[in-house]
Design a binder for these strands. Structure first.
Lengths: 131, 131
DNA sequence: ATAAAGCCTCCAGTAACTGGAAGGTCAAGC
DNA sequence: GCTTGACCTTCCAGTTACTGGAGGCTTTAT
């Protein structure tokens, strides 16, 4: 099938699919007219990539997952380790964001938020601690 | 003071400070030998930027905050609105990451993680739901 | 005098796409 | 047979916020 079709079936934008070819993730055959031709397996890979990306894996991690997927000799522990590492980094990001959120909420609460210019948020960011 | 000194006082890497000049965030004077010369105010601004970035504001939001900081006519509500919007986007990110984390944890739990090749994580990512 | 540290500019690279220009191809309708 | 529009191609540039490195001054310390 052509790239537009593959895009619909995989849920990935056409541009992204071309990009994945460029970086050697999914390399389709070519028709005589030069159009990319995607096999069912190609579409499966594109779907795989779409899901893995949504799970938070980077493109290079996806590359690894894809090679593991195609490696019938793989050990499942390898994949599990990757997944658990990713869980950890996600947890770390959540903690960081939570602390940012708490800071900002506290700052926002301390600001009266009216037409007057004095603003504890800016004061605090500037280092003139007022809270 | 020179850029190295400004870097120490603000906590920003030298490269970053040069970058902030390039994008017209903090433009220092120049000494006769061509070296950047940072005033106390400049360092205050760099500190401000460092903190605002750590709070999750983008560089362009920082630009706005900095102009508000220097605008004695500002209304504090403007700043408060920005802060609350940022809290919302951070919350959204946290939710997204949490759902990613839950998915991945569930997948990892379902995988025996030994030397055998069969792996529910890969199967699930590929769309062959087995959970 | 010389070596190390610090400064300068400019160029390139990162992650993962996204947008747009210029142009070839294909299917449908008249 | 011709046109129109959708779809495809390549290539180039832009996004975010830096970061690294090369090549080359200037300053400081020994």
């Amino acid at each position: 099938m052509n790239i537009g079709n593959a895009s619909e079936l995989s849920g990935l934008p056409v541009k992204t699919i071309r990009y994945y070819e460029e970086i050697d993730l999914v390399k389709p055959a070519r028709a005589e007219n030069g159009y990319r031709f995607y096999s069912k397996d190609d579409v499966l890979y594109l779907n795989f990539l779409n899901r893995a990306r949504k799970l938070g894996f980077s493109v290079s991690e996806c590359r690894l997952l894809l090679s593991l997927y195609n490696d019938t000799e793989r050990s499942s522990s390898e994949v599990k380790t990757l997944a658990l590492q990713k869980v950890e980094t996600i947890e770390a990001k959540i903690l960081e964001l939570t602390s940012m959120k708490n800071m900002l909420s506290k700052l926002a609460q301390s600001c009266h938020g009216d037409n007057r210019p004095d603003c504890p948020i800016l004061d605090e960011i500037a280092g003139k601690a007022t809270i």
